[in-house]
Write a protein that binds this DNA or RNA. Structure first.
Lengths: 402, 402
DNA sequence: ACCACTTTCGCAACAGTGTTGTCAAAGTGC
DNA sequence: GCACTTTGACAACACTGTTGCGAAAGTGGT
């Protein structure tokens, strides 16, 4: 019934493990089924297939799907062709059973989206933001944006995902020392927003939200466009990401390993490893800008020499975008080799200024250095960071680690 | 009772998720408790503390520990000081309740160890091996070594972990194309060994076993030496790894993120991320040797230019070991920044030839480039690869992903 | 048209998990 | 010696997925 108050402790994909009790077990299995149904798209899946994929007995699947049906999350979707006996009745996720909100706090703009359970944008809102004006003003802006997105007649909201720049403590929901904005250091953004909004709030780095968007794009591709509402504010966000979801060699439920590379005033990476965002021991993973690519190269503001960031931004400064793309490509190839990455997504202002140059440039280096020429796939980050933030809020239903 | 036949499907740390039924739930919670007791060392832990750390109720912990006690895995270990009421009775893991075997197949030697549940070496065996002589001869050598280690009067063996060089398919247990040894390609080593030994067998890359050893070393440090038996065969494996386990800022149960760097005929990395070995989508993660560190540098046999491997091995070839250490250090620093690594462990023949030079050289670069000067810890891989392979076999009890 | 067969899927009884309520045991501190 | 706190076990309980069985709904052969 009350699916918001799920028991806390169960196995994270990358965090500490906790004990599992009966409610947590139920939640895990329900999330698993929902995740499979989400990956199946509007065509749906039969109970037998769900049983085979989860490893549960058909009877258990029937009980679980009955509960989900009572909650309105799942509905019947016709029958499949018979395989020699009674045809299986297909079950489909009801995308409008719940919604979630994602907010992207950037340095000068705020963008917020409301998405359905398939991750599709149902409504969006946004406007200018002066990040330097301090946390209080930003909180007000977020509260106003969420209020505009809220629909009293619509389905309940699962939560709000907030993507913010710079270092921050994901667990505590506290901002870190954002370069150039000292007033934000230590601000408990998650707690404050939860108090103001009365909804669960997740706070994470914008690059991690980008990685979540990259992983979620795979799933979104299995669902048709919702119809009217279209993403407008995402400047230069071309959907070069319509690769066929099938035949990816994956069991289902999205790509195994995605990397989101952000090239803006700095360089950052979001890592989606094995079905969840990887944050490292102290939420500091993804430091991509200061990977050394040229030993004893030009000095960087970080103190080292020959970092990706210096090399790339120098190339950008002298107008050599193909050169910058090559630099990013070499660093990306290092990362792809190290982590066995499936997909590389590119985003950020510099990329948006010349998307084709970067996709081609990075793709060329990756193809030259990859062992498997078909991998990894390089694409533009079609979905914005706000969509990724919303995606993270959806994980309370689909069970991926948050 | 029969703890070997645990229900298959439950949540891996990095793999695909499966449904959870009651036996799997029980197994998860028992593994969790055993893992905590293992981390506590011989001093033991009270039931109340176990309940607090797992999130389970005290009553559930009592039931679980009663089952574990009946299996002989856990025993009482005195009482703690009272905190104002009845003093808690301490529970301790019984290390000799089960054993496991780890085998390291190297290019010219084989080393096998039998370890107890604390990961301590109880017996070892080894000898020369001609890896090029083909799989059949190696299988015979492994069978002989395991037979020597087996003790009919000893505790039951949980399984055998096998660490082998080169690419291989961890899931299927099949060898890949080991450079220089074409006869191994496609050989189903795990299946063959399971048939010959009658025990569960895990096959993984030697670098991954090294990472497991690195993570396990943290736990071994909490248990005293077993007494007589001492590691002899591990050439140059100095135990520079006695850092105090406490005060590491971690909740318990080992470091969050470890990296094992192997410097031998090639360079490889084993990644221990968030409590488990990270293998990537196609078991290909850890490709460390061909990270580009010097754009347009000297050509490497892999086709790229300026890889770590060329730079490092060139420095070694001209006798410049500090230079080689610096190269490895810069590449390690990239990796540490990207993944937020806690510990870096060094191993392999080249490192063993001048351990102090490499530990100091790598440490210096890491200290210079790290944000937090206290991290990461650099040390020599005190435990050998065989110990790591045994550690992986222990995961069937302690629940970390395999 | 009929029958045998396969497959799907729900009902009822069941085994086993952690949880709750209650109480005895074993300490500390006044 | 008494009040209080804390530990931890027993019994009843709520709820999970599992098993056994049978009805429903198709296909394909006769």
């Amino acid at each position: 019934m009350n699916r918001g108050s799920r028991n806390s402790g169960h196995s994270d994909a990358h965090g500490r493990r906790g004990g599992v009790n009966l409610p947590a077990l139920r939640g895990h299995n329900e999330a698993l089924v929902l995740d499979l149904l989400r990956g199946a798209g509007p065509a749906g899946l039969g109970r037998t297939e769900l049983a085979a994929r989860t490893g549960l007995t058909p009877q258990a699947v029937s009980k679980i799907t009955a509960r989900l049906g009572a909650d309105g999350l799942v509905a019947e979707a016709g029958r499949a062709a018979s395989t020699g006996g009674k045809p299986r009745t297909l079950l489909r996720l009801v995308p409008d059973a719940r919604h979630a909100v994602g907010v992207h706090l950037d340095r000068d703009v705020l963008r917020a989206v409301r998405v359905d359970l398939a991750g599709r944008v149902v409504a969006d809102s946004g406007g200018p933001l002066d990040f330097g004006a301090g946390p209080e003003a930003a909180v007000e802006a977020v509260v106003r944006a969420v209020a505009r997105l809220r629909d009293p007649d619509g389905p309940p909201l699962l939560g709000v995902g907030v993507a913010a720049p710079g270092p921050l403590d994901h667990r505590a929901g506290v901002m870190g020392r954002v370069t150039g904005f000292p007033s934000w250091k230590g601000f408990p953004l998650r707690g404050v927003l939860e108090g103001r909004l009365g909804l669960p709030v997740l706070l994470d780095k914008d690059t991690n939200a980008g990685a979540a968007a990259a992983a979620g794009a795979w799933l979104r591709a299995t669902w048709p466009e919702p119809g009217s509402e279209v993403d407008v504010a995402g400047a230069g966000a071309v959907g070069a990401d319509a690769a066929a979801p099938a035949g990816d060699g994956l069991a289902g439920g999205g790509p195994h390993t995605c990397v989101y590379l952000h090239v803006g005033t700095g360089l950052g990476a979001g890592l989606w490893l094995g079905g969840g965002v990887y944050r490292g021991a102290r939420s500091a993973a993804g430091e991509f800008g200061h990977q050394v690519l040229l030993l004893d190269g030009p000095p960087c503001r970080c103190g080292a020499r020959g970092c990706v960031e210096v090399l790339c931004l120098e190339a950008v400064a002298r107008g050599d975008l193909p050169g910058a793309a090559r630099i990013v490509g070499e660093a990306a190839a290092n990362l792809v080799a190290l982590l066995d990455v499936d997909r590389v997504l590119l985003g950020g202002r510099v990329v948006a200024s010349a998307p084709d140059v970067f996709v081609a440039g990075v793709g060329a280096v990756l193809a030259a250095r990859a062992l498997d020429p078909a991998r990894p796939v390089v694409a533009l980050a079609g979905a914005g960071v706000a969509e990724g933030a919303a995606e993270m809020a959806l994980t309370s239903l689909f069970g991926r680690a948050g």
